[in-house]
Amino acid sequence: MDPVLIAQIGVILFTFVMLLTSAAILVLMERKVAAFLQQRLGPNRVGPWGTLQPVADIVKLLFKEELRPGAADAILFTLAPILSVTAAFAAFAVVPWGGTTTLWGLLPEPVPLRVADVNVGILVLFAITSMGIYGIVLAGWSSNSKYSLLGGLRSSAQMISYELSYGLALGAVLLLGNSLSLTDVVNQQAGHWFGFVPRWFVVLQPVGFLVFMIAGVAETNRAPFDFPEAEQELVAGYHTEYSSFSFACFFLAEYVNMVVVSAVAVNLYLGGWHGPFPLPEAVGGLWWVAKVFALLFFYIWMRWTLPRYRYDQLMHFGWKYLLPVAVLNLLATAAAVLYWG
């Protein structure tokens, strides 16, 4: 068999496994960071420094009983977590996580480090993300419980509202990058301005980056925008009635979605795998991983620092501040590209 083909299949499998692993690392990271922010020790019983805690968590979840409320819609109740987790993983398919590699000369030609390079990549990402909403909405509706329904309703309203700002922030980067492929956008961020400022789009798009990150946090339903699962009001929101593996699916989907949003932000704004200074090829991918984890740390840091907003504040903010700012940013970028580009 062609070694390049095997390498490409290997890249796909590796991406999938790494995505799963990163979710497990995030679970531990979340608990450890939360503990340090609250002056606690965090998990430290399972494995050295609590490193095996995610494994223990998963095993515990899988051995629980799978419950389904009697009045639930059986088909949709089963379908919802599957949809959620599938959309989360599928979205990563168009996200490149490195340039090309020859595996230190083992391969006859360089193999790109990504699952698929679609020429409308960013739009595909957007389409898959919008499919992910159905998982949450259906979970909320099919559980036939008032808390779940309210959680599902809130999340759909929230995701529709913030998807607009998210898309408009993306649009401004596309104008700069002049391409819909994430690989092309990253490749345009190589090099430096004046010899020391990295050519990252965050320098040109500080407002866009801010809008993107706020909308990204809202899209992934994370604190301070975690209304679909506001514990004090809704028990656990859309996944109140879920247990065992289907609950694990929602859990996994949330963390994978965080990784996807961070990875897209790194590729669009923070120069992807291009660092401020180049590293040797063997560890070249470290820039990308380091940037993604820096953003993920920011996510966790924010969750344990900021209190949850009120629901009307969220809607008010999304439509009356974030969206106009995103529109103005897009118009200003378009004018600038027309003038200087």
Partner: peptide
């Protein structure tokens, strides 16, 4: 025409049908 396909999913599959679901749920 991948562009038409993706637009179909974003506009019809995503935005419009979420609103439909919303109405049905409410």
């Amino acid at each position: 025409s991948p562009f038409a396909a993706v637009t179909q999913i974003i506009v019809y599959g995503g935005a419009i049908m979420v609103l439909f679901l919303f109405v049905v749920m409410l």
